[in-house]
Simulated scan of single mutants.
Amino acid sequence: MEPLDLLYEEAGQPGSGLPPALATVYGGDLGFTPPCVYANFVTSIDGVAALGPEFLSSGSAISGRNPADRFVMGLLRACADAVLIGAGTLRATPSHKWTPDHVCPQAAPDFGELRRSLGRATQPELVVVTASGDLPTEHPALQSGALVATTMDGTRRLDGRLPPACTVLPTREGSTVRMADILAALHAHGHTTVLTEGGPHLIGNLLGEGLLDELFLTTSPVLAGRADTPRPGLIAGLELLPEQPAWMDLISARRRDSYLFLRYRLHLSNSRVGLRSAVAI
């Protein structure tokens, strides 16, 4: 794969000592200071992040399955202890597995080398968030094993339905989940570097509780458009402007052809302030 073109990099960022093959393609090092929650999304030029519930695998459609985007996706997964997704994302991608090699198999040996150097498990642990317990339990990602973070109501609904490889993380009574509770449970499992790949409601929850640290955003050179189908952007279920803008600092910019790969850090003035949202996932 051709290297990404490095356009900008803020000085002093943490590094993990990427294996040479990964560092060459990425155009430098990549690292995180734990505890850290970082998101990865692809959007169209007009800001669409999901095409709607009737369209499966929205991310692949928006990205055009671009090899550079899939490499970055795999690299970000390879750096993580756990990959956090909402139930809607699981339902919308019925054959997906949230592992580095699933999206970029040609880099699998290098991803494995990186994880060994970081002291990580062979694969990041998948964490699925569901308030209701409404999950497609036959999904191959659940069959392979996952942590399922849910409410007590969701726990009762899932009782006896999940594959044996899954573990339930019950959080609280009621119809909503608190991301702070989920992250505390993940930290107890030793997962302090957490990647989330959405969807927009999950990102809204994380921002609403002031728990998102960084955002990796791929801008795909495509216009998606909007008409009668709900097509959310990065965040759903949470209004920020004009009362509570969540400013971010650009800390990295890369390019491959007409795709932009941007890295933002949530501005310290709004980080972990508790913007307050309660979204049922």
Rank of each mutant, 00 (worst) to 15 (best):
D134E: 10
P140E: 11
E113L: 15
C79L: 15
R120P: 01
Q123E: 15
V194F: 04
P100Q: 04
T193N: 01
L207N: 05
K97N: 07
L76G: 00
C79Y: 03
D110V: 03
G88T: 06
A82F: 02
V148F: 08
P105A: 12
V148Q: 03
G119H: 10
K97C: 13
A180P: 04
V103I: 08
P105E: 12
Q123W: 13
G160E: 14
T122K: 14
A80M: 04
A149E: 03
A146M: 11
R157I: 09
P170C: 07
L118D: 04
P163N: 04
H96N: 05
A188Q: 12
A107L: 10
L75P: 01
P105S: 13
P105F: 12
L142P: 11
L118N: 01
L169I: 15
F111H: 10
A121W: 00
L202W: 06
R91D: 04
P163F: 00
V168T: 15
L206G: 00
L162R: 04
T130E: 08
G190L: 02
T193H: 00
E197S: 03
T99S: 13
A149S: 02
T93Y: 09
V168E: 01
R120Q: 14
P200W: 00
P170H: 06
L135K: 03
L118Y: 02
G199I: 09
A107W: 06
A121H: 07
A78N: 01
D181M: 02
C104I: 13
D101P: 00
P164G: 05
L206E: 02
C104D: 15
A131H: 01
T171P: 12
D153K: 08
E197G: 05
T150D: 09
L158M: 04
S132A: 14
P163I: 03
E138H: 12
T151Y: 10
D101C: 03
D81N: 15
R161D: 14
T122F: 13
L75S: 04
P170F: 10
N205D: 13
N205W: 00
G199Y: 09
T196W: 10
A180D: 13
A165I: 08
L207T: 00
E113Q: 15
S144N: 06
M179L: 14
E125W: 06
D159W: 11
L135I: 07
T122A: 14
L183V: 02
H201R: 14
P140A: 10
G199H: 13
A121K: 13
I182E: 00
A121Q: 14
G88E: 07
A141E: 07
L207W: 00
G160Q: 13
Q123V: 14
T130A: 11
A82P: 04
T171N: 07
V177P: 06
M179D: 03
L207V: 05
C104H: 14
H187Y: 12
H187A: 14
V103G: 03
T93D: 15
